[in-house]
Design a protein around this nucleic acid. Structure first.
Length: 108
DNA sequence: CTATTGACGGGGT
DNA sequence: CACCCCGCCAATA
């Protein structure tokens, strides 16, 4: 992807508050690149190990952690819990409650 | 150049 | 909940 895409996605991600979560699709939209949800995912996957970004606060549109069964997914759940985010027994987050920005996850 | 591949999304069964 | 299908679009093969 273009450097512009990466830059804008990162800028948005840096605004994602602790204790809140967002989705690949919403991040892409906020960055000005609608329909690029998959690319946000690829970008986060390419992040260097020590990147100081709240990548763990990004979930799929269904409120679930991506790439289930991987080390990264387990680690992500730990970081979210540490963040105060509640995960259901099936590992899903209530986006109506923790979703950010709120207006993107409001009911109705 | 065509084909395949995703940290995705939405709709249907 | 589980699948399946199709649209999406840049990177890779």
């Amino acid at each position: 992807m273009t450097a512009d895409f990466e830059k804008k996605v990162i800028v948005v991600l840096l605004r994602l508050p602790p204790g809140r979560v967002s989705t690949y699709g919403v991040l892409a939209q906020l960055a000005g690149y609608p329909r690029h949800a998959r690319h946000v995912g690829r970008l986060l996957g390419q992040l260097p190990a020590g990147a100081q970004l709240p990548w763990f606060r990004v979930l799929g549109a269904g409120g679930k952690v991506s790439r289930p069964g991987t080390e990264q997914a387990d680690w992500q759940r730990v970081l979210l819990e540490e963040d105060g985010v509640v995960l259901s027994s099936s590992g899903r987050v209530d986006l109506r409650r923790y979703g950010w920005p709120e207006e993107y996850f409001a009911l109705g």
